[in-house]
């Protein structure tokens, strides 16, 4: 039995900060003790004296010594993280939860669908998948954002688009006037061709709750089975280890049984979407 409290973080140094959009930044962390995570797992980040909040790293899990976390400014803790400069000290706990089950995904066509800051965990997944693309069938990526300026990881997205295994499309809710040449509309408007063979497709979806809901409905309509729709569920998670009770969703604690839950596990729950 470890005597260390599961509620206390290890120290990490903030190595670098990248501005991704007006509201989203990526922080690069060097934890004092290496934190090895599976793609899709999450960590709790502490700003000393302010508090902590859960985030899924956006970096390649095979580069554990440099963990990147991409954060939307949404509240007290995220604003405090946005205010940090390189060299600052931050706390990290984790990793927690199940992460993406790459074993279950291998041999299948992948439909990777993200919205807004939901691209962050999916970047980690795409980076890992592209380490061994031969393990998977077609890799179809569909990303959306409210407007072009909020579509993050643009440089990398263009590199992935040129990868022979990847089929990628983008959309924005509103184009504005800055030369956007791709689709305009919510992310469900670019899903028609995301699963030509629905029975051998695994869909991985991450984004705000309303986007998860309508994407799930669209994927079901396309014929993808509920058990093949992998959703990153958003819940209030405080402890990360199934003790504090906040993140219960039906039979599951999102922090230990998720955050990735297939739709069959939650479709009967009245509070699955909000």
């Amino acid at each position: 039995m470890s005597e260390r409290s599961p509620y206390l973080p290890v120290r990490a140094r903030l190595e670098d900060v990248r501005v991704e959009s007006s509201t989203i930044r990526t922080v690069v962390l060097a934890p004092e003790e290496e934190i090895r995570f599976r793609t899709g797992q999450f960590v709790e980040l502490t700003v000393p004296g302010v508090g902590e909040a859960p985030f899924t790293p956006s970096s390649n899990p095979r580069r554990a010594e440099r963990m990147e976390v991409t954060i939307l400014r949404a509240g007290r803790v995220t604003s405090a993280i946005h205010a940090l400069a390189p060299g600052a000290e931050i706390g990290v706990r984790g990793p927690y939860g199940n992460g993406y089950d790459l074993g279950a995904l291998s041999g299948k066509d992948l439909a990777i669908i993200g919205g807004g800051v939901g691209l962050a965990p999916l970047r980690s997944l795409v980076l890992e998948v592209l380490e061994e693309p031969e393990r998977f069938g077609a890799i179809r990526i569909r990303f959306g954002a409210r407007e072009p300026g909020e579509l993050i990881f643009r440089g990398e997205i263009e590199r992935w688009r040129r990868h022979p295994s990847v089929d990628l499309a983008l959309t924005v809710d509103r184009a504005g006037g800055d030369g956007w040449t791709e689709n305009v509309g919510v992310v469900t408007t670019i899903l028609q061709d995301v699963a030509p063979n629905p029975a051998r497709t695994e869909a991985i979806v991450c984004g705000p709750p309303v986007m998860l809901k309508f994407t799930t409905l669209k994927l079901l309509e396309l014929g993808i089975p509920a058990a093949s729709i992998h959703l990153s569920m958003e819940r209030n998670m405080s402890c990360g280890v199934g003790h504090c009770g906040h993140c219960r969703l039906g039979k599951y604690y999102v922090c230990v049984d998720g955050p990735v839950l297939t739709y069959d596990k939650i479709q009967a729950e009245v509070d699955a979407w909000f």
């Binding site: 509620y7 502490t46 000393p48 004296g49 302010v50 508090g51 902590e52 405080s238 402890c239 003790h243 504090c244 009770g245 906040h246």
Partner: peptide, 9 residues
């Protein structure tokens, strides 16, 4: 058993 973790100074 539900609780919150809150950070003081």
């Amino acid at each position: 058993h539900c609780f919150l973790l809150a950070d003081g100074e």
